[in-house]
Amino acid sequence: MTGADAAPGRRMTMIEAINDALDVMLARDPMVVVLGEDVGYFGGVFRATAGLQAKHGRTRVFDTPISECGIIGVAVGMGAYGLRPVPEIQFADYIYPGLDQLVSEAARLRYRSAGEFTAPMTVRSPFGGGIFGGQTHSQSPEALFTHVAGIKTVVPSTPHDAKGLLIAAIEDNDPVIFFEPKRLYNGPFNGHYDEPAVPWSRHPDSHVPEGHYRIDLGTARVVRAGEAVTVLAYGTMVHVAREVAERQGIDAEVIDLRTLVPLDIAAIERSVRKTGRCMVVHEATRTGGFGAELAALVQERCFYALEAPVERVTGFDTPYPHSLEWAYFPGPVRIGEAFDRLIAA
């Protein structure tokens, strides 16, 4: 946390931290604009932009038509003008109509124009499940973006990181997809859906410093140090994996990747070389998921340190269900058994 605890600040939920980051950047840089469905007067369906229009004005924070293609498309044009747009896609599940503008335009504009034009936008989007959102409000499409050359992909797991990462993303001159795990908006979810929810106020990483600070993209964070197993996770699964390690008494080192592209490969190698065992965890579907990339990187770069096959713990290759949400979710049992296999190997 590099002294952040000592800095003046207050406890916040992830929503409040994101709101604070936007507020800081709107005040700090006149080129920042926030746009998206329902983000203006109402302040967003998750309240991430609450109060920002009243404070910064209707031409800085405004609602848009229901057109993801249009939202991303105008953001590309705004970026070409010199603005730093922060479009919100209301749910990651809705991002697909904007995909061409992201993949073919924003991601490649710097390259195709040899730097004449850039797309310095940060696309915020609530993602992930565990909130009974069904198949259209629960998806984790990060691998679609990590596969695209020219886009950075960020997934925070705490209020403290959410603010620092979002500020770094907005200040970045390349397009950034900023996926906000919905299940973490109001509390750190440990995977035990049948236990009472824990609010952020009881979690140390809810201490959010005042004002401007950055967490550089491409830096992972060791959430829990350990010697026996390395866990690579991001978003909601950071908390779930940590909880399983605690309850099973496993000396696991849990690494929150925070940024998927660019990836903090040094942190991964350092840890896996030490533990010799590695688990990758994500909530998204399994086949072709980002976990496959992580597992491949670990075997390429740490093969002779490995004592066991890399374990991949993910959601199932089905649409995200509604009533059977917890059957899909890679919860404590799936993770715990993977720990057991790793340790026994």
């Binding site: 498309g73 105008v74 603005l83």
Partner: peptide, 25 residues
């Protein structure tokens, strides 16, 4: 003059975004 894309019609909303930015500023 903006960079030309091979993907058709993408420049249309981009032009609107540029115009909106110009108006915002």
């Amino acid at each position: 003059i903006f960079s030309i894309s091979g993907n058709l019609a993408t420049q249309y909303p981009q032009a609107v975004g540029w115009a909106m930015a110009s108006a915002i500023r």
